[in-house]
């Protein structure tokens, strides 16, 4: 138990500098981008010099770099995410709207990709260089090579337009009637195509990692020892091969989930899902510093939390990890 607590404390401390660096990076990125939030806004509306000046004044964009930096540091120190310029609302409320959609897509994509990927990986790694292994590995390579925007478009054309099994876009129906069960089914129905589009590439990653781990494990001494002890082939596979090979897969899962919490601009745009990826994109094109900092910081927090969970899971799978001085 102390092992876990120490890990938690260490991670919480190391999260602070990470967050600060990331927030500062987002701030500087938009500081150095040409044009400000008012320029981005005026591109849609036009307006005379007074209109622009009034907007800059009301949005607090008039000052010098030093003043804006000071404002940024103050809001950071007071943990105030501030007001979004693009949405004219508090950043926290915008993120609170978008984050659940991205988390849902992340969860469904991870479950789908890990489920299929690990399953196929086990089939392939059971007998390396067998016909099944070659077939599965080649298929995985193809999946990895398909760009998700293209796959997404194909899925839409095939399964939403020509054969309308799934909705074209959105995260839920515009008008829902019925209880929570209906709403949940509706949500899952909407998640199918985006999950397939986003998850296909990840299937290959899980598959290849697990398979590689298994290939290595088959050669190892503990497998030979287990066989020498007369263990059945299936229990050798389960305990001696799959279990150690799962460790690198967990690491891969952690990394993938980390990428997914940032949201996918492409898939979210294609399927009109209001998520974090699209939000970050809108923040950059709208030169909305407060929003971008908020998006980047919340994504970073999620990544750190996920890494922590992965570390804990690893420690559980492999008792040797973090056991020093334990």
């Amino acid at each position: 138990m102390t092992r876990v607590l120490r890990l938690l404390a260490l991670r919480a401390l190391s999260a602070i500098p990470t967050l600060l660096i990331v927030a500062f990076g987002a701030f500087m990125l938009l500081e150095f981008a040409p044009g400000d939030a008012v320029d981005a806004y005026l591109a849609q509306t036009g307006g005379d010099a007074g209109f622009a000046a009034e907007l800059r004044r009301s949005l607090g964009l008039g000052g010098t770099f030093a003043e804006r930096l000071a404002g940024f540091l103050v809001s950071l120190a007071t943990l105030d995410l501030g007001q979004s310029v693009v949405f004219a609302r508090p950043v926290a409320s915008v993120i609170a709207e978008r984050l659940p959609n991205t988390l849902l897509l992340m969860a469904s994509t991870t479950l789908f990709a890990a489920g299929i990927g690990l399953g196929l990986g086990m089939l392939a790694g059971r007998r390396p260089s067998s016909l099944a292994d070659h077939g599965i590995s080649t298929a995985a390579l193809v999946l990895l090579a398909i760009p998700n925007f293209w796959l997404g478009l194909l899925l839409v054309v095939g399964l939403a337009v020509s054969w309308p099994l799934f909705p074209v876009a959105g995260i839920r129906s515009l008008t829902t009637t019925g209880g929570p069960a209906v709403a949940l089914l509706d949500l899952l129905h909407h998640l199918v195509l985006p999950t397939l589009a986003l998850g296909a590439g990840y299937i290959a990653l899980y598959l290849r990692t697990l398979r590689a781990g298994m290939v290595e494990a088959w050669q190892s001494d503990h497998v030979r020892a287990a066989r020498a002890r007369g263990l059945s082939e299936s229990s050798v596979l389960r305990r001696g091969v799959v279990r150690p090979a799962l460790l690198p897969s967990l690491v891969v899962a952690g990394q993938n989930i980390g990428t997914l919490v940032g949201g996918s601009v492409v898939v979210e745009t294609l399927f009109s899902i209001p998520g974090m990826g699209r939000l970050a994109f809108e923040a950059v094109t709208g030169r909305d510093t407060a929003l971008l900092v908020g998006v980047v910081m919340s994504a970073t927090l999620m990544v750190l939390a996920i890494n922590l969970v992965v570390d804990l899971a690893m420690a559980w799978v492999d008792p040797r990890l973090g056991a020093i001085d334990g």
Binding site: V156, A160, V161, A169, L270, S272
Partner: peptide, 19 residues
């Protein structure tokens, strides 16, 4: 109802699917 559809391809698909 104004449905927010940021992708132009999705707009074409939604029209075809009568959504």
């Amino acid at each position: 109802i104004y449905r927010v559809l940021p992708d132009r391809g999705a707009i074409a698909a939604a029209l075809e699917a009568n959504q």
